[in-house]
Protein backbone atom coordinates (compact mmCIF):
# COMPACT_ATOMS: atom_id res chain seq x y z
CA UNK A 1 0.00 0.00 0.00
CA UNK A 2 1.16 3.50 -0.77
CA UNK A 3 2.65 4.87 2.50
CA UNK A 4 1.46 8.36 1.52
CA UNK A 5 -2.12 7.23 2.26
CA UNK A 6 -1.50 7.61 5.99
CA UNK A 7 -0.23 11.15 5.50
CA UNK A 8 -3.29 12.03 3.40
CA UNK A 9 -5.56 10.61 6.12
CA UNK A 10 -3.70 12.70 8.71
CA UNK A 11 -4.15 15.80 6.53
CA UNK A 12 -7.90 15.13 6.21
CA UNK A 13 -8.29 14.69 9.98
CA UNK A 14 -6.28 17.86 10.59
CA UNK A 15 -8.47 19.80 8.16
CA UNK A 16 -11.64 18.61 9.92
CA UNK A 17 -10.09 19.80 13.18
CA UNK A 18 -9.34 23.20 11.66
CA UNK A 19 -12.94 23.49 10.46
CA UNK A 20 -14.23 22.57 13.91
CA UNK A 21 -12.09 25.27 15.57
CA UNK A 22 -13.29 27.88 13.07
CA UNK A 23 -17.00 27.07 13.15
CA UNK A 24 -18.02 25.76 16.57
CA UNK A 25 -18.97 28.13 19.40
CA UNK A 26 -18.80 25.80 22.39
CA UNK A 27 -15.35 26.12 23.98
CA UNK A 28 -15.27 22.41 24.84
CA UNK A 29 -15.95 21.35 21.25
CA UNK A 30 -13.28 23.79 20.00
CA UNK A 31 -10.93 22.09 22.44
CA UNK A 32 -11.85 18.64 21.13
CA UNK A 33 -11.05 19.87 17.61
CA UNK A 34 -7.60 20.91 18.81
CA UNK A 35 -7.15 17.42 20.25
CA UNK A 36 -8.12 15.96 16.89
CA UNK A 37 -5.48 18.09 15.16
CA UNK A 38 -2.84 16.86 17.63
CA UNK A 39 -3.91 13.29 16.89
CA UNK A 40 -3.61 13.89 13.15
CA UNK A 41 -0.09 15.25 13.63
CA UNK A 42 0.76 12.18 15.73
CA UNK A 43 -0.51 9.91 12.98
CA UNK A 44 1.74 11.69 10.49
CA UNK A 45 4.72 11.27 12.86
CA UNK A 46 4.12 7.53 13.28
CA UNK A 47 3.59 7.01 9.54
CA UNK A 48 6.74 8.95 8.71
CA UNK A 49 8.74 6.96 11.27
CA UNK A 50 7.73 3.74 9.59
CA UNK A 51 8.38 5.07 6.10
CA UNK A 52 11.92 6.06 6.96
CA UNK A 53 12.57 3.08 9.21
CA UNK A 54 13.59 5.19 12.21
CA UNK A 55 12.10 5.18 15.70
CA UNK A 56 12.45 8.87 16.59
CA UNK A 57 9.00 9.71 15.20
CA UNK A 58 7.38 7.30 17.65
CA UNK A 59 9.12 8.94 20.60
CA UNK A 60 8.11 12.42 19.38
CA UNK A 61 4.50 11.24 19.03
CA UNK A 62 4.70 9.88 22.58
CA UNK A 63 5.96 13.26 23.83
CA UNK A 64 3.17 15.03 21.92
CA UNK A 65 0.67 12.85 23.80
CA UNK A 66 2.18 13.92 27.14
CA UNK A 67 2.07 17.60 26.16
CA UNK A 68 -1.53 17.16 24.98
CA UNK A 69 -2.50 15.62 28.33
CA UNK A 70 -0.97 18.58 30.21
CA UNK A 71 -2.64 21.03 27.84
CA UNK A 72 -6.05 19.40 28.29
CA UNK A 73 -5.80 19.62 32.07
CA UNK A 74 -4.99 23.34 32.05
CA UNK A 75 -7.41 24.17 29.22
CA UNK A 76 -10.36 22.42 30.84
CA UNK A 77 -9.55 24.10 34.16
CA UNK A 78 -9.69 27.48 32.36
CA UNK A 79 -13.03 26.54 30.76
CA UNK A 80 -14.45 25.54 34.15
CA UNK A 81 -13.23 28.83 35.67
CA UNK A 82 -14.79 30.88 32.85
CA UNK A 83 -18.00 28.89 33.24
CA UNK A 84 -18.08 29.66 36.97
CA UNK A 85 -17.90 33.40 36.41
CA UNK A 86 -20.06 33.67 33.26
CA UNK A 87 -22.33 30.60 33.52
CA UNK A 88 -21.59 29.90 29.85
CA UNK A 89 -19.12 27.84 27.86
CA UNK A 90 -19.58 29.82 24.68
CA UNK A 91 -16.44 31.42 23.28
CA UNK A 92 -18.40 34.44 22.05
CA UNK A 93 -19.21 35.52 25.58
CA UNK A 94 -15.60 35.36 26.74
CA UNK A 95 -14.56 38.06 24.31
CA UNK A 96 -13.63 40.54 27.03
CA UNK A 97 -10.40 40.14 28.93
CA UNK A 98 -11.91 41.55 32.13
CA UNK A 99 -15.23 42.05 33.94
Amino acid sequence: MNPNNYLILAAILFTIGVYGVLVRRNAIIVFMSVELMLNAANLAFVAAARNTGTLDGLVIAFFVMVVAAAEVVVGLAIIVTIFRTRRSASIDEASLMKY
Binding site: N2, P3, G53, T54
Partner: peptide
Protein backbone atom coordinates in the same frame (compact mmCIF):
# COMPACT_ATOMS: atom_id res chain seq x y z
CA UNK B 1 6.43 7.53 -2.46
CA UNK B 2 9.17 5.10 -1.78
CA UNK B 3 8.19 1.71 -0.41
CA UNK B 4 7.93 1.81 3.37
CA UNK B 5 11.19 0.90 5.10
CA UNK B 6 9.46 -0.79 8.06
CA UNK B 7 10.65 -0.80 11.65
CA UNK B 8 11.99 -4.35 11.87
CA UNK B 9 15.63 -3.38 11.30
CA UNK B 10 15.48 -0.39 13.64
CA UNK B 11 13.86 -2.52 16.36
Amino acid sequence: SSPSAGLAIAN
